[in-house]
C-alpha cells in the first residue's frame, strides 16, 4: 500500500445510472476518466440503458444484477430522484453500495442517492473522505482526480472488526 501506484490509470469506475441521470455530470466523469487513462462501465437497472436528464440515451454495459461493485475500483452513483423508489427495492443496488463501502472504495454520489446509503446501512456520520458529493461537473472531475489513491484504507477499522 505504501508503495502504491498513486494513479487511476488502467483502473475502472463503475457508474450507476437510472432514467433521468444528470447528463452533464456523466459527461464530466467520462472526460476525467479518459484523461486519467482509466475506463468505466455503466450499470443501469436494465441492460438496455437509461434516458439521461437531457433526453440522450445512456448505453449500459451491465444490468444492476450483473455489475456488482466488486468488479470496479471505485463507484459513482448518479441516480435521479424519480428512479429511487425502484432502486431502493432492489437489493443488488443496496449491495452495490454496501460492498463498495465495505471494501474501502471511493464513492461519488449525487444527493438523490442519499436514501440508498441509509438502505445500505451507511449512516450520515459514517461518511468519510472517500464518500464524495459529485453534484456538479467540476466536483465530478475532482472526484476522479482523487481516485489515484485507489482505496480509503482509513475506513477499514470502521468496517472490519479488529
Amino acid at each position: 500500500m505504501e508503495n502504491g501506484p498513486e494513479r487511476f490509470e488502467g483502473r475502472k469506475l463503475g457508474i450507476l445510472v437510472t432514467d433521468g441521470s444528470d447528463a452533464g455530470i456523466l459527461k464530466a466523469l467520462k472526460a476525467a476518466l479518459d484523461k486519467a487513462g482509466a475506463t468505466f462501465e455503466i450499470i443501469a437497472p436494465k441492460v438496455t440503458g437509461a434516458k439521461a436528464s437531457d433526453g440522450s440515451w445512456i448505453d449500459a454495459d451491465q444490468m444492476i444484477d450483473g455489475g456488482p461493485s466488486v468488479l470496479y475500483d471505485a463507484v459513482a452513483l448518479l441516480p435521479a430522484a424519480d428512479a429511487m423508489g425502484d432502486l431502493l427495492l432492489e437489493s443488488s443496488a443496496r449491495d452495490f453500495l454496501a460492498d463498495a463501502f465495505a471494501h474501502c472504495k471511493f464513492i461519488g454520489y449525487v444527493d438523490a442517492a442519499l436514501p440508498l446509503f441509509e438502505k445500505a446501512g451507511i449512516a450520515s456520520d459514517d461518511f468519510d473522505e472517500g464518500c464524495i458529493s459529485i453534484a456538479s461537473a467540476k466536483a465530478a472531475k475532482s472526484f476522479v482526480d482523487g481516485l489515484a489513491k485507489l482505496r480509503v484504507w482509513e475506513r477499514e477499522p470502521h468496517v472490519k472488526m479488529p
Binding site: N3, G4, P5, E6, R7, E9, G10, R11, P68, V70, L71, D99, A102, H103, C104, L150
Partner: peptide, 14 residues
C-alpha cells in the same frame, strides 16, 4: 502501473 490488490471479502464476491 504499480501493485494493487483487492480485499478478501471482495475476492470471494468477484
Amino acid at each position: 502501473l504499480g501493485l494493487q490488490s483487492v480485499v478478501w471479502n471482495e475476492a470471494v464476491k468477484i
